[in-house]
Design a protein around this nucleic acid. Structure first.
Lengths: 153, 153
DNA sequence: AGATTGTCGAGCGATTTAGTCAGCATTGTA
DNA sequence: TACAATGCTGACTAAATCGCTCGACAATCT
């Protein structure tokens, strides 16, 4: 019942791209270092995000990755589904044909249907812009803390 | 992000016990056959359910398993948490010390906190009695279908 | 004593997770 | 044109988890 590192790393990477929007492509190595993601693993996540149209990539010197759409038009649900596959807690609730729609708890499907729908609604309501805003706040707070160490908890 | 067969099988087993409440202990083999659960696997699930006080078991001829509490006082949340461990989608939201409370998406913890709470609320509101009632209805419907085959979809 | 039940822990094959790595493709710059 | 900087791809792997089996043991009834 856990979200994997794929979802985590992927979202972190997108936040990094959103923070530097309009400044040209950001390189794989920079994303990896700044967000603490294994560089060669990040490759695969970026590839997936590109396949699903969240980012654009350019090769060669000065190349890198950038958002393909404004952060406000990218929602957490779609990003996670791209990286993790369907988030359905039961195979039989999933659209994804990779889940072999016929095992656990299908008898209690009705219980999970609502829970799953509610979860999707909430995740769909959160955009990359929201996440980025929070992130900026967090960084601001961190800088204040660093400047006045005696206020630390 | 999936519920495993443990939760599934465990709930099915408890429903079976609830359906035969007051008729003395039900044997492992009977539960397994009637609910289509591998017998030797069921062992471990029953052991866990006993450790957590959902069922009582008696050995020897005529022994078996029975509910330790009335079905209305057993909720789906607790059963699943017993069998699956914490249902928290992030380690950092879990009470369970088995989850090493410090990896994925902790930066987006606030997103998941609410989703998780809502899920728990809903699962806590469903009792074994509710599940059993649904099951009885399902069986009734099945019998009607069997008696009048030409009504089948 | 012996049959019938539950209890417990070791082990095992398959799958998934979380990566690494080597080699190729593309593109800017000199 | 050469070459350096970047991204792209697929094969590989180590470790964890899942779903289960098995064998030995413990309790209890007749």
């Amino acid at each position: 019942m856990k979200i994997s590192t794929k979802g985590d790393y992927g979202v972190r990477a997108l936040i990094e791209l959103a923070l530097h929007e309009g400044e040209g492509p950001v390189q794989r190595a920079d994303i990896a270092h700044r967000r603490q993601i294994p560089e060669s693993y990040l490759d695969h996540l970026l590839a997936q995000l590109r396949r699903d149209g969240f980012i654009r990539s350019t090769r060669g010197p000065g190349g890198g990755h950038e958002l393909a759409r404004p952060p406000a038009e990218i929602c957490l649900l779609h990003v996670l589904e791209s990286l993790e596959g369907s988030l359905a807690p039961l195979g039989c609730l999933s659209d994804d044909p990779a889940d072999d729609a016929h095992d656990p708890l299908c008898g209690q499907q009705w219980v999970w249907r609502e829970i799953f729908d509610e979860m999707r609604r909430r995740l769909a309501a959160i955009s990359l812009a929201d996440l980025t805003e929070r992130e900026r706040e967090r960084e601001r707070a961190e800088r204040v803390m660093a400047a006045a160490p005696h206020y630390k908890i």
